[in-house]
Design a protein around this nucleic acid. Sequence first.
DNA 1: CTTGTATTCCATAATTCTTTGGAATAGTGT
DNA 2: ACACTATTCCAAAGAATTATGGAATACAAG
Lengths: 218, 218
Amino acid sequence: MADSEKKAALFDQLARVGKALGNGKRLELLDLLAQSERSVESLATASGMGLTTVSAHLQTLKAAGLLTTRREGQKIHYSLADDDVAALYRLARDTASTHLAEVERAAADYLGDQPAQVSREALLAGIERGEYTVLDVRPAEEYAAGHLPGAIGIPMDELADRLTEIPADARVVAYCRGTYCVFAHDAVELLARSGRNAARLEGGLLEWRLADLPVETA
Amino acid sequence: MADSEKKAALFDQLARVGKALGNGKRLELLDLLAQSERSVESLATASGMGLTTVSAHLQTLKAAGLLTTRREGQKIHYSLADDDVAALYRLARDTASTHLAEVERAAADYLGDQPAQVSREALLAGIERGEYTVLDVRPAEEYAAGHLPGAIGIPMDELADRLTEIPADARVVAYCRGTYCVFAHDAVELLARSGRNAARLEGGLLEWRLADLPVETA
DNA sequence: CTTGTATTCCATAATTCTTTGGAATAGTGT
DNA sequence: ACACTATTCCAAAGAATTATGGAATACAAG
């Protein structure tokens, strides 16, 4: 094999990771898996994709080295191979958002108006002073897998019915999966309509974790 | 448009960056552009690809926001849009190499035996003490665009003829573009065969620069 | 051992990507 | 204005990717 063919073979191997990241559905799956491990079925439900479609995408991601699996009973749990994978996902996402105007447009269209945001630094300082009530509005299994220290967990689809669990005069900071997750936007809107003082955390658990800030696993 | 369609549209946008990274030829181009800006023709020559093929790939990379262009005379110079792009390229590459055994195999096949390596930290310390002669064996235009402080620039294909420019008793540390660049391997082998004391820098200018170490632009 | 469940495999059709010559374009330099 | 050069556009063929039912597999649980 000629030298340039060997070089091409090497770069083709390196491109496998990029290929795996080059599909919106797969990014949605990575986004979910960045929160907690999940079974194939659970990913299909959470993402709204077909079961065999999810399975095929998971094979692709796993073949690219981005995922690992663990069997428990009859279920197979997929998870990110490594925190580097979460970092890679985030960097690719942020590069897209920095350089592509269409991303901003699509995000605005999906997320709606930006609510008031609290930075991670401000929240961390405020938590220590007891200024904020931190509210995790992700699905219960993601909250269970790890959440901000002291955060209350109320999934978004139960929030309307469980408002009484939140002190009426609290300064609430809601968060969810990450920058492009819609739950916390919806939560802030709902809380504001109920006359609460609410803001959204900048980013979500993904960004919090990648910033090496403390995560609680009750 | 339904909410899940908006979400899909957003993630499809984000996937554009991954798609751009998902092709070996495009990674080769990024690898070159991480060293210095280049014209289309120059990239075609350096990479051995067809001119229109290179142009098409550059369009793809640019449409993904990874490249910018600058016109000078009749030439259009492409360069990375940002240092984040270099960081993204590197992280994708390193993720592949960490998780895919095939990458190690393809690299060993292309690069041959690993020569002795000097870490960036050791070299930096050694430079200050004047212990090492640093040798840049990349093409002249890449050396001109930026090199290690005090490095001598002798392109690999001229090295055999210009050995006398290197003190015979020097402890030479050769480097080139990056981890998967073959020039420095070849240089160390050539120097060793000539009875010189030579080692390779771990990584290359890409990794040096991303580590925020000093770069000289003569 | 048999049943049941979660997941993967397979085949296929629709779509998208890649490469490549030749033509077109845009801008430079005279 | 004219010729020249670097680059891009276009079209087409071949290759790879994607989504999706139905069948097959691999375990676990009984």
